[in-house]
Each structure stands twice: as C-alpha cells, then as structure tokens.
C-alpha cells in the first residue's frame, strides 16, 4: 500500500497540458525525487497534491483517501506539508511565529479561546511554542527565532520553510527545490537535515534541479518532460536512460 499514489493525473491550463497523465507512487519512508527541465510540470505536481489546483483528470490517493477536490488546509491536516520553489514565508512575522503557524492544524484554540485565554488555551499555546522551538532546532535556526523572517539570508529562509512544514508533524514532506540558491556548504548541511528527517520516519518527495544533489540523496528518481513521466527508477538507472539524456539536451546527467 503506497503512501501517495497519482493515477493518470492530468492538468490543463487553457491550451497547455502542464501535467499529462502521470502515474506516480511513493512508498512510506523513501526519498523520491522528481526531476526534469524547467517548465516540465514538477511544481505543478506539488500544487496538485496539496490541493492548490484540482486535477483536470485522474486521481490522487493518500493513505486510501482521495485528495481530489480537497482543500489545501484539509490536506495539510491529513499529514502532507510542503515548501515552495519561490519561498513563501510570512515575511513580517518573527521566525518563531512562522513555525508556530505551521502547527495550526495540530492545535485548536478558537477565536473565543483567544479572547478568554483559558488555562487550556494557555497550555496549548505553550505546547505550540515548544514544538516550534524543536523544529527550529532541528533546522539549526533556534538562534534566529526573534528575527523577522524577511531578514534571514536566502538559505536560512529555505530551512525555515522546512521547519514550518515540520511543525505539523507531517508523514509526507514535499520539498520544491530546497537547495536552490544555496552554496555547496549549505547544500551539504541540507542533505544531512533531509536525511535525518527521513530517518525520523518521514517520507520525502523532492523536486530538485541540482543533479548531484538528487543522485546523492534519493532512493528513487522520476523524470518529467513536457508534463509526461519519461523515466522512473533508481538514480543509476535513470542516469543511463537515453530519454532522460535527450530531455536534458545531451547535457551530461551527473
């Protein structure tokens, strides 16, 4: 029983078929990478899984539940959290509060709770803060907790997005180009962080441009080209696949 399954998923934007009848399976506990040239439809796959767009056709199943038509906030509650290719933090909020927001679906104080501030609400608020601090520590950002998110350097903003996603205790973590714009030292740290997240029992679905990064970290790699899946297998298999090499315009894949 796969954790996430895409079955002939298609989405059309006007005349453009951004994702074309894609089948994809993610098993619990693996790191799966989705690669492909710019505009291949990778981020769109994430947007479909997280309910930002409903698929034009096909089904998306997570733990035996159909995700089609479910709202993003509901999908998050089911155990899927994500980051964005073009970082989407809450820039004016402090780093700590960004991560606290990530805990939203695992807490429940309402507007009346906010106004009355009962002992139960205070206790929950404390637990949210505790969890947020843990996630910041995990991503090595605890010393920055009081800074506004917008003031962090780029690489730390990317890590903050992961910390925020982790705050919801997800089972499936979607990372859209988490290494983009990072230098090689930062990338090394990131690989360690992602590996330790997997070792905590999470399943990681990764979109990445950096081949070296992908090949080192992935259990399995799937390749998209013009919205269609052209390969799916171990990193070494995919590297040798002639279709993949052609898609990357003869650029050496490694």
């Amino acid at each position: 029983m796969p954790l996430l399954e895409l079955n002939e998923v298609t989405i059309r934007f006007g005349g453009l078929i951004a994702v074309d009848s894609v089948d994809l399976v993610i098993e619990k506990g693996e790191i799966l990478s989705l690669i492909g040239p710019n505009g291949a439809g990778k981020s769109t796959v994430f947007n479909l899984v997280t309910g930002i767009y409903p698929p034009t056709a096909g089904t998306i199943t997570y733990k035996e539940q159909r995700l089609n038509g479910k709202k993003s906030y509901h999908i998050n509650r089911l155990g899927i959290a994500r980051t964005f290719q073009n970082i989407r933090l809450f820039p004016e909020l402090p780093v700590l509060d960004n991560v606290k927001v990530g805990r939203h679906c695992r807490s429940k104080a309402s507007v009346f709770g906010a106004l009355l501030r009962t002992p139960a609400v205070k206790a929950e608020e404390k637990a949210i803060e505790q969890k947020a601090l843990e996630c910041l520590e995990l991503m090595g950002l605890d010393h920055k907790k009081d800074e506004a998110a917008k003031n962090l350097p780029y690489g730390e903003q990317r890590r903050l997005e992961i910390a925020r996603a982790m705050a919801s205790d997800p089972e499936l973590l979607l990372l859209d180009e988490p290494a983009a714009g990072m230098n090689s030292t930062e990338k090394k740290v990131l690989v360690e962080k992602i590996t330790s997240i997997r070792d905590m029992g999470l399943t990681v679905f990764l979109v990445e441009h950096d081949m070296k990064f992908v090949m080192g970290i992935s259990d399995r790699v799937a390749v998209l080209d013009y919205g269609r899946k052209i390969a799916d297998g171990s990193p070494t298999e995919v590297q040798k696949n002639p279709d993949v090499i052609a898609a990357y315009l003869g650029k050496e894949v490694v």
């Binding site: 709202k71 993003s72 906030y73 998050n76 927001v101 939203h104």
Partner: peptide
C-alpha cells in the same frame, strides 16, 4: 502575508 502559504499550513 501569504494566503496560499497559510492554506498549505492548515489555515
């Protein structure tokens, strides 16, 4: 700050 990010974080 960001409605889409808010929705994806359970709001």
């Amino acid at each position: 700050e960001d409605e889409i990010a808010a929705e994806c974080n359970g709001i």
